[in-house]
Computed example of a mutant assay.
Amino acid sequence: MPEISRFLGMIIAMYYDDHAPPHFHVRYGDREAVIRINDLACIQGNLPPKAMGLVIEWAMAHKEELEKDWALARQDLPLNKIAPLE
């Protein structure tokens, strides 16, 4: 799973052969979550509330980049790194 960003102990990644809807994966310690890109809803797993809030804040700031990476993944093209949460 290609890593597209990393910050505050969280790893953000996308799979090339993943299913719709467009989403990204978050790993934080022993927890994992899948976040849908269009509305930033958690569709699988969970994170501690503070970590989830930080991921959503990051994703809101980089939604267009996430959509572009999803499109690249569908074409089996290299994904772009996305800046971490500042």
Rank of each mutant, 00 (worst) to 15 (best):
M1P: 02
P2H: 04
E3S: 05
I4P: 04
S5M: 06
L8P: 00
L8F: 10
L8D: 15
G9S: 11
G9W: 07
I11G: 01
I11D: 08
I12L: 15
I12A: 05
I12M: 10
M14G: 07
Y16D: 07
Y16F: 15
D17A: 15
D17P: 02
D18G: 06
H19S: 05
A20F: 13
P22N: 13
P22K: 13
H25Y: 12
V26R: 01
V26Y: 01
V26K: 00
R27T: 14
R27F: 03
Y28K: 01
G29M: 13
G29Q: 10
D30S: 12
D30G: 08
D30F: 07
R31Q: 13
A33E: 01
A33G: 07
A41I: 06
A41K: 15
A41D: 14
A41H: 13
A41Q: 13
C42K: 09
I43A: 03
Q44R: 07
Q44E: 11
Q44I: 00
Q44T: 00
G45S: 10
G45R: 08
N46Q: 09
L47K: 05
L47I: 14
P48A: 12
P48N: 01
A51H: 02
A51C: 02
M52T: 02
G53I: 01
G53Q: 05
L54C: 06
L54S: 03
V55K: 02
V55E: 02
I56A: 00
W58M: 11
W58P: 08
W58D: 10
H62D: 03
H62Y: 10
H62I: 06
H62A: 04
K63R: 15
E64C: 03
E64P: 00
E65D: 12
K68A: 14
D69F: 00
A71Q: 12
L72F: 09
R74D: 01
Q75R: 13
D76C: 13
L77T: 04
P78M: 09
P78G: 14
L79A: 08
L79H: 02
L79C: 05
N80S: 07
N80Q: 09
N80I: 01
K81E: 05
K81I: 04
I82N: 11
A83I: 04
P84F: 10
P84Y: 12
L85G: 02
L85A: 07
E86A: 10
